[in-house]
Design a protein around this nucleic acid. Structure first.
Length: 587
RNA sequence: GCGCCCGUAGCUCAAUCCGGAUAGAGCAUCGGCCUUCUAAGCCGACGGUUGCUGGUUCGAUUCCAGUCGGGCGCGCCA
């Protein structure tokens, strides 16, 4: 809709330039929705931008432009207002056309091809396999998965990636903690390992290890990724990610075999994380193990490449990256004096792998407490000198989540001890409410998750409010079925002009915003815009629903109203689908 | 001390592709609407110096500088 107006203005600009009336390049003007009805439906600032280079009064420029505007059936009239805005008042026909489009495109309405099939890798959650996922991971999961759904909807080839830090000291602590539990040592015991994990799940883990249990989790090695990378490099866009096959670990039962304990514990926790994420409606295409970067020499390759490009130096027995050459605030150690590597080198190697696998866009979703690694990883990638853009990868950082119930902060979980888990959140609020609440706020502001509100079955709760709008349309459909009333779409589309009044109009206007919202949410990595929008659409629908009866005797009018109701349903369902929230048929 | 994020109605938050016109919703409070497709809904009222001070310009919640308040990060930890 916006595009059509954009074209009209470009035409006007072109013809004026050809006639020599306008002597300036077309500025990067904006067409936006107006805030108030008095200003029409859309407004454009092009005259304001042209005024300065032309040295002319903006209102005068606007008048020239408006006079040169081609006629369009979509535009009823054009006004010049304020300092020189060009306001467009759209014809009813323009809105009707959009409703036709919704019914025609159905479940595809709001989708686009702006991604043009390019590959985007979205990394999120990436929790260490050392404990259950917590509410911060829940927010990451909701944001990352919604971004992934949005990119799919806009024509990108999406790969969801999960990176496991399975190689460091944390894993050693995990193994030691489990071993301590196996030997009957409690967290309060002086013999308990220094940085041990104290949660109850360690006891469950120890018990399963001792009983010789077998667990099955995601993929074991980086082989999968490397195989996948060749495919991606070759054809650029593979049809689908290969099926992720699981791997099994059977507990060794020997309390002194720390390696066996570690392997079992990692598999056990990965299984638990997998299950929680699956319960939350989130699946991944690629599981990438940090350990594979060592075993396959990728870490070494990064170090050598950076050294070869002259961006590193030795000092104090360590090898440093000259990160300050690339915008970081200090130089960073890559290889410690004991010969091991700092964690950020595999991080760079991992992102290098994403680059080599052909991701035109890579989005890394992290907790804001990791924002320090951002400059470091980008500096490392720049130091490779292989043409990676300075702002690649893109980052989305999310702020802290606090869970509140009964007016009090909830801090403790039975499973994990010191924090509230994703599982707790699902149990307390349900998947739909949890996903919606976690996505509804801008990711860089802190989030208070009010459990009582999330589970409230009332108009206080935006999730129910939106879902209820959808269920109401379905209820109308059921009524039609029960009363043997047919919806005649052909007839409906001919009589959309029977839709009169502000309320129906408001619904049409809201519906037409959907494609714009989807594009903006995707391009700006701001999924909260979509959550917010659906609340507004549902509101416009409820008002209209309340004001007018759909199933009237007048066939033409009835068909027209039902058509608009169905169009609303498509948008609600499509939008909720992008959030991973269900669209119930009845409530 | 340095860096990043946030500060908008009593509360929770918006403000659309980095500048637009009279800053919007919901909740809370007060007052109305169900013999009609789900009242899990709707209508109305009340509520603001966008933390503060300057700057940039036709125009600032938005950009810049400073300042105050909250959060996070500044390791040869991950």
């Amino acid at each position: 809709m916006k595009d059509a107006l954009h074209d009209l203005l470009l035409h006007a600009l072109d013809s004026l330039r050809r006639d020599g009336v306008l002597d300036a390049p077309a500025p990067d003007f904006v067409i936006e929705r107006t805030r108030s009805r008095e200003h029409g439906d859309f407004a454009c600032n092009v005259a304001l931008l042209l005024a300065k280079p032309l040295g002319r009064n903006p209102r005068e420029v606007a008048e020239t432009l408006v006079a040169a505007l081609p006629k369009s059936h979509r535009v009823e009239r054009v006004e010049i207002a304020g300092p020189g805005f060009i306001n467009f008042f759209l014809s009813d026909a323009a809105w009707h056309e959009e409703i036709r489009r919704v019914l025609h495109e159905g479940t595809q309405y709001g989708h686009s091809r702006s991604g043009a099939g390019r590959a985007v890798g979205i990394e999120f959650v990436s929790a260490n396999p050392t404990g259950p996922l917590h509410v911060g991971h829940a927010r990451a999961a909701a944001i990352g998965d919604t971004l992934a759904r949005l990119h799919s909807a806009t024509g990108w080839k999406v790969y969801r990636e999960f990176y496991y830090n399975d190689a460091g000291a944390q894993i050693q602590n995990l193994a030691l903690s489990v071993q301590a539990r196996i030997k009957g040592i409690e967290p309060d015991d002086p013999r308990w390992p220094a940085d041990g994990y104290r949660g109850d799940y360690i006891r469950d883990l120890a018990r399963d290890y001792q009983s010789g249990a077998t667990v099955e989790a995601g993929h074991p090695t980086g082989d999968y990724n490397r195989e996948y990378s060749r495919e991606l490099a070759k054809v650029d866009v593979p049809e689908a990610a290969p099926e992720v096959t699981g791997y099994r670990v059977t507990a060794g039962q020997d309390p002194d075999d720390l390696d066996a304990i570690r392997d079992f514990a990692v598999a056990w926790l990965r299984r638990e994380q997998d299950e929680d994420l699956r319960a939350f409606g989130v699946r991944f295409d690629v599981y990438f193990l940090e350990s594979s970067l060592y075993t396959e020499g990728e870490v070494l390759r990064v170090i050598e490449r950076i050294a070869q490009q002259g961006h590193s130096y030795e000092a104090d027995g360590a090898l440093w990256l000259r990160a300050t050459d690339f915008g970081d605030d200090k130089d960073r150690v890559m290889r410690k004096s004991d010969g091991t590597y700092t964690y950020f080198v595999p991080d760079v190697a991992y992102h290098l792998s994403k680059w080599e696998r052909g991701y035109k866009r890579a989005i890394t979703e992290l907790g804001a407490d990791h924002h320090g690694s951002l400059a470091r990883v980008r500096a490392g990638l720049q130091a490779l000198d292989i043409g990676i853009p300075k702002d690649w990868p893109e980052y989305v950082l999310h702020q802290m989540v606090t869970v509140v119930k009964g007016g009090e902060e909830v801090k403790i979980s039975k499973r994990a001890g010191s924090y509230v888990t994703l599982r707790d959140l699902i149990d307390m609020a349900g998947i739909d409410a949890a996903r919606y609440f976690l996505i509804a706020r801008k990711s860089d502001s802190q989030l208070v998750f009010d459990v009582d509100l999330a589970r409230a079955q009332s108009n206080d709760n935006p999730v129910y409010y939106i879902q209820y709008a959808h269920a109401r349309v379905c209820s109308v459909q059921r009524q039609m079925h029960d009363r043997s009333i047919l919806f005649e779409q052909h007839n409906a589309l001919k009589h959309l002009d029977r839709l009169r009044g502000e309320h129906a109009r408001a619904v049409m206007v809201e519906i037409s915003r959907f494609p714009e919202i989807v594009e903006a949410s995707t391009a700006n990595r701001e999924p909260h815009l979509l959550a917010q929008y659906l609340r507004e659409l549902a509101g416009a629908f409820h008002v209209w629903y309340n004001a007018e009866q759909f199933l009237v005797d007048d066939e033409d009018l009835r068909n027209a109203r039902v058509a608009l109701a169905f169009a609303t349903r498509y948008v609600l369902a499509n939008g909720l689908g992008m959030l991973g929230v269900s669209a119930p048929l009845s409530m």
